[in-house]
Design a binder for these strands. Structure first.
Lengths: 263, 263
DNA sequence: CGGTGTGAAAACCTTCACAGCG
DNA sequence: CGCTGTGAAGGTTTTCACACCG
């Protein structure tokens, strides 16, 4: 199995900062909406509002692409749509395979925004032989055995993994071996891939945990020191699995003593 | 409708940097796996590898939580699991509602990692009256009319939006009005929410577009100047919708002339 | 000795504020 | 005059490298 680099090492591709690249799709979406309403030009202020960023950031982002605006006026919507599309590589068509056609895979296959912008679902692949042939979103599911052939035959370079966590690395290895160089991973695992392969991760439970962190903070904002009150008293509650705490000086910020363990 | 702040203003909650918070769930997952294999301690090097980051970063991250390691040895797995869980607020139970039970909503409802870590699906809500009562993942779907009541009755503070884009803002407004203060948005729209409400976004098509950008870059790495070859020649291909290009000096990096437009 | 914890340096990203152009 | 484009300042994140401790 492939055991190479793990994280993308801040690719920092030709001049355009990664943070900017990550926002271009946002701008593009906002611009597309304007385009559909036949709005001819837009100011950085307006566009920034539509994309949910501030205008200074937007202008700086665009400055990496070139000087595409007109002072005193703003940006030509159609022209910008084209420039950003080109920069993102959306002027060509990207065949994509989705591996793992459970609930999530089916959702992805049905996702409209998929086809609309340069991406085309070339194949759906699942390990369950019973699914083979069943159409999902109008595309018949194929068996994992065909994986390599499908990728080579269709010249696919982008793969989406929506399998259970346990299968993800194995699928990933096969995708990479077959020539895939970009992977979008929905399985809750860290994938390890060789150099030159990009992995992006979408992870529901991580997002929720980040929200929980902020949520907790909001709740405890005014009710500050409370858990840190009487250590021995709270300790009586248990600490089910909390283990070898040496009796040393932990300088953890507050409530050092376990109360409830989740899993 | 709620028309307040748009983006979260870098909440920067009590000392712990946002970037660190975003990685804690990763560490937690790796630690949980170690815990299940009854590994008692782990070094920053090992844990970092399992989480897909480098060890310096991991140590710095942990240093914000406190001094929970032992020099020359490493970190006590169980103890760290507890500390991180507590920091993330996972020692309490978070009821969550999912609004929009299409393919994606169903996938989310069925997602196992959901329940395992402090999160509990309190209700599934959909606008389609025909779905009301149908169980998904063992939970009966309720109609949107009940939204406010469900949230208040269950003390829900986290909402997941998996509706079509068109419905998202409206649903968001109702969630917020009913008391929700954290939202995970799967709809491809920028949500506008009042101050104090956190929004996180998961967007398939944005992720794909970022991958496409890097993919394109890889492809064009050696075949550099080529599109920038003969401007007038390539222009003959078309430029379907590319609009009012004044004949001014655009200083775009390369290939300034449209060839194919996607949408 | 081995590995954590952390100042200091470097890289990166955002925001400011204003020159300059249409 | 209005708005872009951008140096410069400010902030955050990552990386380095090593003191220090078990």
């Amino acid at each position: 199995m492939a055991t190479g680099r793990t994280h993308r090492p801040a690719t920092r591709s030709r001049g355009i900062p990664e943070a900017t690249v990550a926002r271009l799709p946002l701008y593009l979406r906002a611009l597309t909406a304007l385009s559909e309403r036949s709005v001819p030009t837009v100011s950085s202020e307006e566009l920034a509002a539509a994309a949910g960023v501030n205008s200074a950031k937007l202008r700086k982002d665009f400055s990496y692409l070139g000087s595409y605006g007109t002072r005193g006026v703003g940006y030509d919507v159609e022209y910008l749509v084209y420039q950003i599309s080109r920069e993102l590589g959306l002027t060509q068509d990207w065949p994509v395979v989705i591996v793992g056609i459970g609930n999530l895979g089916a959702a992805l296959a049905n996702y409209g925004g998929f086809a609309s912008r340069g991406f085309r679902v070339a194949a759906l692949i699942d390990a369950d032989p019973a699914m083979a042939g069943t159409p999902v979103a109008g595309i018949p599911v194929q068996h994992t055995d065909e994986l390599e052939k499908i990728i080579v035959d269709n010249g696919v370079s982008i793969g989406v993994i929506s399998t259970p966590a346990g299968a993800a690395q194995q699928v990933c290895d096969r995708l990479v071996a077959a020539g895939i160089t970009s992977i979008l991973n929905f399985a809750p695992t860290v994938l390890s891939v060789p150099d030159g392969v990009d992995v992006r991760k979408v992870d529901l439970s991580i997002e929720l945990q980040i929200l929980a962190f902020h949520e907790q903070r909001k709740a405890g904002e005014e009710a500050e020191a409370e858990a840190a009150a009487v250590p021995s008293a709270t300790a009586a509650l248990g600490a089910p699995t909390a283990p070898g705490r040496k009796g040393t000086d932990r300088k953890g910020p507050d409530g050092d003593v376990p109360a409830v363990m989740p899993a």
